[in-house]
Design a binder for these strands. Structure first.
Lengths: 238, 238
DNA sequence: TGAGCTATGTTCTATAGCGCACACAAGACC
DNA sequence: GGTCTTGTGTGCGCTATAGAACATAGCTCA
């Protein structure tokens, strides 16, 4: 596996930290490959590592009693997986699952606790992201309450497109159903609706967004709400 | 209105801060009366004050396009209203509404930013609460997805009971419907169900919990999940 | 004491999504 | 080239909740 210094750091929390802080962090960072469906941390167990995704994508899921789960947040290169650590807490309430494979920089949770004290800038970036994540989770709560599957699925596809910067990616109905917290059949039906309208094409685990504008119109406003929050927060670089 | 020093501070974030930090904060604190349905901050506008509730109770609501809202979090004496400020952000994504009248200590947002840097202990308390709030919001997201109105209503009543430490409190069907993001009729029906089972009594804006154990059984597991998180986090004092 | 407002209760129709069961189709693997 | 696995599509009955409209009961205030 490539060392941290060989490949350009794509994670924006790290990229936005001052060079000297980043250099101090470097010895603690390790580049890892994350593969589809890999679990980064389980709910209510100690977080060993935090992850700064480069081109990977991680879903944060909340579970309820009977093994049902629903995605509440999605973390890509703009964030960090392990926000509780940032807040001084070593357990996550979430199940963190790799939803799109790729690389990430990882670091021991204990190292982050030590180092973030020394780097105000990194800490500020982490807090900024924590705020965004909280807003995203809250919007998802309302979205789950009010919007129908087709809208939520459109939102999900668009959000994922934004995070991975690609109009085509792999996701099965089954997996997507878990993310949205619905039956697999619910996804099949919603996908059928969107396909009939020529907004997407979907075949054996590969989705392609054909008409992003149309898909945005089919999605609920939650997509735009969260997207705007993210771009506001990221635009003014300090 | 009574000065801050006259009445005992009931807010636990403040109470748990070291005395010397608290004394430094005191000049910036002001005790205020909060009345039912008062708005503390609007979404996407600058947060002027943060609030440390004493015996008051504040709902955090997220709205979607067409003026519909749903409660995503509930803050009482264990917390602070204005978590984004804690994270260095001066806008809240939430609508903060007083759900149970009472008093709170309030402080200018800018003062909190300045002072929290000087008080590591206060900051730590605020972060601890931020983590709890995030977990609560995430649980609500999943709860909204999976649980029926009766369960969610039972959860809400129990949570409120815990926060206000009383088995009777005032809330109309209409108001509760907004919190749960359902029709008023939905609340009327769910209330009827719970009343038939002798778990609560409900009359013209006053609910009484008659059988807390039975009501817990009628509620979804989300109640216990969040309650346990809170008591874990609050039990080990540092 | 009666008018008016606020809070609650009832009913009807429509629909999204559930659970379940089964059919089919495209690759993968021997 | 056939069999097995994985991923999709379809159909059926059922329930929770939405939307809308209307009825009534208790409280307040003139």
């Amino acid at each position: 596996m490539a060392g941290a210094e060989v490949v350009a750091i794509q994670n924006r929390l790290l990229a936005n930290s001052p060079r000297k802080d980043y250099l101090r962090l470097l010895p603690h960072l390790e580049m890892v490959d994350l593969t589809y469906s890999e679990v980064l941390h389980e709910p209510h167990t100690r977080i060993r590592h935090v992850y700064f995704p480069n081109d990977s994508l991680i879903s944060l899921l909340t579970s309820v009693e009977n093994h049902r789960v629903a995605e509440v947040g999605l973390v890509g290169a703009e964030g960090i997986v392990g926000v509780p650590v940032v807040l001084g807490h070593l357990e996550s309430p979430f199940l963190a699952v790799v939803q799109g494979g790729g690389t990430a920089m990882r670091m021991k949770a204990s190292d982050l606790v030590r180092e973030s004290v020394k780097s105000v800038a990194l800490q500020r970036e982490c807090f900024r992201f924590t705020h965004l994540l909280m807003a995203q989770i809250a919007q998802t709560a309302a979205c789950n309450r009010f919007h129908v599957v087709t809208q939520r699925m459109a939102r999900w596809l668009l959000t994922t497109r934004d995070r991975v910067s690609a109009t085509q990616f792999r996701i099965t109905h089954e997996f997507l159903a878990r993310m949205l917290g619905v039956r697999r059949v619910g996804v099949t039906e919603a996908a059928g609706t969107l396909q009939k309208r020529k907004l997407i094409s979907y075949s054996r685990g590969t989705v392609t967004i054909l008409d992003a504008k149309g898909l945005t119109a089919a999605a609920c406003g939650c997509y735009k709400t969260v997207k705007d929050l993210y771009s506001q927060a990221q635009a003014p670089r300090r």
